[in-house]
Design a protein around this nucleic acid. Sequence first.
DNA 1: TAACTGACTCGGC
DNA 2: AGCCGAGCCAGTT
Length: 133
Amino acid sequence: MKGKQKRTTAKTNPPSDDTMPDKGPHRFFDDVFDVVRLIPTGRVSSYGAIAAYLGSGLSARMVGWAMNASHRVEPPVPAHRVVNRNGMLSGRMHFETPTAMEELLQTEGIQVNENSVVDFAGIFWDPSRELGI
DNA sequence: TAACTGACTCGGC
DNA sequence: AGCCGAGCCAGTT
Protein backbone atom coordinates (compact mmCIF):
# COMPACT_ATOMS: atom_id res chain seq x y z
CA MET A 1 0.00 0.00 0.00
CA LYS A 2 1.20 3.40 -0.85
CA GLY A 3 -0.63 4.94 2.06
CA LYS A 4 -1.13 8.27 0.41
CA GLN A 5 -1.25 8.90 -3.27
CA LYS A 6 0.18 12.23 -4.17
CA ARG A 7 -2.26 14.20 -6.29
CA THR A 8 -2.69 11.76 -9.08
CA THR A 9 -6.35 12.40 -9.67
CA ALA A 10 -6.90 16.10 -9.50
CA LYS A 11 -4.20 17.12 -11.88
CA THR A 12 -4.55 20.83 -12.13
CA ASN A 13 -2.05 20.86 -14.93
CA PRO A 14 0.23 23.49 -13.49
CA PRO A 15 1.97 25.75 -15.96
CA SER A 16 5.37 24.43 -15.12
CA ASP A 17 5.56 21.11 -13.44
CA ASP A 18 5.70 18.13 -15.73
CA THR A 19 4.27 19.70 -18.81
CA MET A 20 7.18 20.73 -20.91
CA PRO A 21 9.70 21.87 -18.36
CA ASP A 22 10.77 25.27 -19.50
CA LYS A 23 14.23 24.25 -18.42
CA GLY A 24 14.90 27.45 -16.65
CA PRO A 25 18.18 26.73 -14.88
CA HIS A 26 18.86 23.71 -17.05
CA ARG A 27 19.01 25.71 -20.23
CA PHE A 28 22.73 25.95 -19.66
CA PHE A 29 23.28 22.40 -20.86
CA ASP A 30 21.36 22.96 -24.06
CA ASP A 31 23.28 26.13 -24.69
CA VAL A 32 26.53 24.24 -24.37
CA PHE A 33 25.32 21.55 -26.73
CA ASP A 34 24.23 24.12 -29.24
CA VAL A 35 27.56 25.91 -29.22
CA VAL A 36 29.53 22.69 -29.53
CA ARG A 37 27.40 21.65 -32.47
CA LEU A 38 28.41 24.87 -34.19
CA ILE A 39 32.08 23.98 -34.12
CA PRO A 40 33.00 23.42 -37.77
CA THR A 41 34.68 20.26 -38.91
CA GLY A 42 38.41 20.57 -38.70
CA ARG A 43 38.29 23.09 -35.87
CA VAL A 44 38.38 22.70 -32.12
CA SER A 45 37.31 24.78 -29.16
CA SER A 46 37.95 24.74 -25.45
CA TYR A 47 35.85 24.39 -22.35
CA GLY A 48 36.82 27.80 -21.11
CA ALA A 49 36.01 29.51 -24.41
CA ILE A 50 32.54 28.02 -24.45
CA ALA A 51 31.98 28.91 -20.82
CA ALA A 52 33.14 32.45 -21.51
CA TYR A 53 30.80 32.72 -24.49
CA LEU A 54 27.83 31.68 -22.40
CA GLY A 55 29.44 34.03 -19.96
CA SER A 56 27.05 34.03 -17.04
CA GLY A 57 29.50 33.25 -14.31
CA LEU A 58 29.75 29.77 -15.70
CA SER A 59 32.57 27.50 -14.96
CA ALA A 60 34.50 25.58 -17.56
CA ARG A 61 33.96 22.52 -15.43
CA MET A 62 30.27 22.55 -16.18
CA VAL A 63 31.01 22.55 -19.88
CA GLY A 64 32.95 19.36 -19.40
CA TRP A 65 30.18 17.97 -17.29
CA ALA A 66 27.70 18.84 -20.01
CA MET A 67 29.84 16.88 -22.42
CA ASN A 68 29.42 13.90 -20.17
CA ALA A 69 25.69 14.08 -20.78
CA SER A 70 26.10 14.94 -24.44
CA HIS A 71 26.20 11.31 -25.46
CA ARG A 72 22.51 10.90 -24.78
CA VAL A 73 21.17 13.99 -26.51
CA GLU A 74 20.03 14.52 -30.05
CA PRO A 75 21.33 15.49 -32.41
CA PRO A 76 24.73 14.17 -31.38
CA VAL A 77 27.22 16.63 -30.00
CA PRO A 78 30.78 16.56 -31.41
CA ALA A 79 32.30 16.51 -27.96
CA HIS A 80 35.61 15.39 -29.44
CA ARG A 81 36.09 18.90 -30.80
CA VAL A 82 36.28 20.30 -27.31
CA VAL A 83 39.65 20.20 -25.60
CA ASN A 84 41.22 22.05 -22.75
CA ARG A 85 43.02 25.36 -23.01
CA ASN A 86 46.30 23.63 -23.78
CA GLY A 87 44.82 21.74 -26.71
CA MET A 88 45.10 18.46 -24.84
CA LEU A 89 42.49 15.76 -25.24
CA SER A 90 41.69 15.75 -21.55
CA GLY A 91 38.32 14.12 -22.15
CA ARG A 92 39.51 11.18 -24.19
CA MET A 93 39.04 8.73 -21.32
CA HIS A 94 35.33 9.46 -21.30
CA PHE A 95 34.76 8.20 -24.81
CA GLU A 96 33.92 4.64 -25.59
CA THR A 97 37.58 3.95 -26.10
CA PRO A 98 40.58 6.02 -25.01
CA THR A 99 41.58 6.49 -28.63
CA ALA A 100 38.13 7.32 -30.03
CA MET A 101 38.54 11.05 -29.52
CA GLU A 102 41.91 11.17 -31.20
CA GLU A 103 40.75 9.07 -34.13
CA LEU A 104 37.66 11.20 -34.64
CA LEU A 105 39.79 14.32 -34.78
CA GLN A 106 42.22 12.74 -37.21
CA THR A 107 39.31 11.71 -39.38
CA GLU A 108 38.36 15.36 -39.57
CA GLY A 109 41.85 16.31 -40.63
CA ILE A 110 43.10 17.39 -37.23
CA GLN A 111 46.52 16.12 -36.32
CA VAL A 112 47.04 14.87 -32.81
CA ASN A 113 50.42 14.32 -31.25
CA GLU A 114 50.76 12.86 -27.78
CA ASN A 115 47.17 13.62 -26.83
CA SER A 116 47.56 17.22 -27.96
CA VAL A 117 46.08 18.97 -30.98
CA VAL A 118 48.75 20.05 -33.44
CA ASP A 119 48.55 23.74 -34.35
CA PHE A 120 45.90 24.20 -31.71
CA ALA A 121 46.08 27.98 -31.95
CA GLY A 122 45.65 27.81 -35.72
CA ILE A 123 42.46 25.77 -35.74
CA PHE A 124 41.07 27.06 -32.50
CA TRP A 125 37.44 28.09 -32.86
CA ASP A 126 36.38 30.77 -30.44
CA PRO A 127 32.59 31.11 -30.19
CA SER A 128 32.90 34.62 -28.82
CA ARG A 129 34.80 35.63 -31.91
CA GLU A 130 33.00 33.53 -34.53
CA LEU A 131 29.47 33.96 -33.27
CA GLY A 132 29.89 37.47 -32.04
CA ILE A 133 30.89 38.81 -28.69
C1' DT B 1 19.50 16.67 3.18
C1' DA B 2 24.39 17.67 3.03
C1' DA B 3 28.66 16.81 1.05
C1' DC B 4 31.69 15.42 -2.70
C1' DT B 5 33.04 15.18 -7.26
C1' DG B 6 34.41 16.69 -11.76
C1' DA B 7 36.18 16.02 -19.65
C1' DC B 8 38.55 23.46 -16.26
C1' DT B 9 41.00 27.65 -15.45
C1' DC B 10 43.58 31.17 -12.99
C1' DG B 11 46.53 33.04 -9.59
C1' DG B 12 50.06 32.53 -6.12
C1' DC B 13 54.34 30.29 -4.26
C1' DA C 1 59.69 25.65 -13.93
C1' DG C 2 56.08 22.95 -11.62
C1' DC C 3 52.84 22.32 -7.65
C1' DC C 4 48.88 23.85 -4.78
C1' DG C 5 44.49 26.05 -3.64
C1' DA C 6 40.26 28.50 -4.86
C1' DG C 7 36.12 29.40 -7.75
C1' DC C 8 32.56 27.68 -10.37
C1' DC C 9 27.58 24.93 -11.02
C1' DA C 10 25.00 20.83 -11.49
C1' DG C 11 24.64 15.95 -10.88
C1' DT C 12 25.47 11.92 -7.97
C1' DT C 13 25.70 9.33 -3.53
